[in-house]
């Protein structure tokens, strides 16, 4: 993968200024990273429809799943319609789709389940016209929970697929 374009460096700088959001940790681990906290200047990046911030905050970068399922919900498809439209409009960007599971399951199974969820999103985006070459999938299984209680309220947020926008083509 190439990480050299100025646009991505800008994204990285914004993310770093938000909160601890290290590399390799799943780009959604810091909710609201780059959302403005500590960013100099009055302009909210999310107000620019061509910005990745707009994608993640206004369109919605994630879809949620039922327990042990990888079929997309009605709400999920609506979000993905918006994602597809954005990706078709902003052709300079690619996306990595992260598949996640809640903690109710074995590690190995959840890796496979996360892979199914990420792929369900990819297939849907492709069906809406996004070129496959701009989409990659990665599973994190249950390794990157967003909400940390051991209740359904948290599990529901963790059973997710997150579309992370990055600049440049897939090498």
């Amino acid at each position: 993968m190439k990480y050299l374009t100025p646009a991505l460096l800008l994204v990285a700088a914004l993310a770093a200024s938000g909160c601890a959001n290290r590399n390799n940790r799943g780009a959604d681990s810091g909710m609201g990273a780059g959302a403005g906290a500590g960013v100099a200047g009055p302009v909210d990046p999310a107000s620019n429809p061509a910005s990745p911030q707009y994608f993640s905050q206004r369109i919605g970068d994630r879809v949620l799943f039922e327990v042990d399922q990888f079929t997309l919900t009605e709400t999920g498809r609506a979000t993905l319609n918006g994602q597809a439209e954005w990706l078709l409009t902003n052709a300079d960007y690619r996306a990595v789709i992260e598949g996640h599971a809640d903690e109710q399951g074995t590690r190995e199974y959840n890796l496979a389940l996360g892979s199914r969820r990420a792929n369900a999103v990819r297939e849907y985006l492709v069906s809406r016209g996004v070129p496959t070459g701009r989409l990659q999938t990665v599973t994190y299984g249950k390794e990157r929970p967003l909400a940390i209680c051991s209740e359904e309220a948290c599990y529901a947020q963790n059973r997710r697929a997150v579309t992370v926008i990055a600049a440049g083509s897939i090498s």
Binding site: F70, E108, L111, A112, S115, R116, A118, N119, A120, R122, E123, T137, T139
Partner: peptide, 9 residues
């Protein structure tokens, strides 16, 4: 090992 491709493992 397991190999995952196109959502299938």
């Amino acid at each position: 090992y397991s190999l995952s491709n196109g959502g299938n493992t």
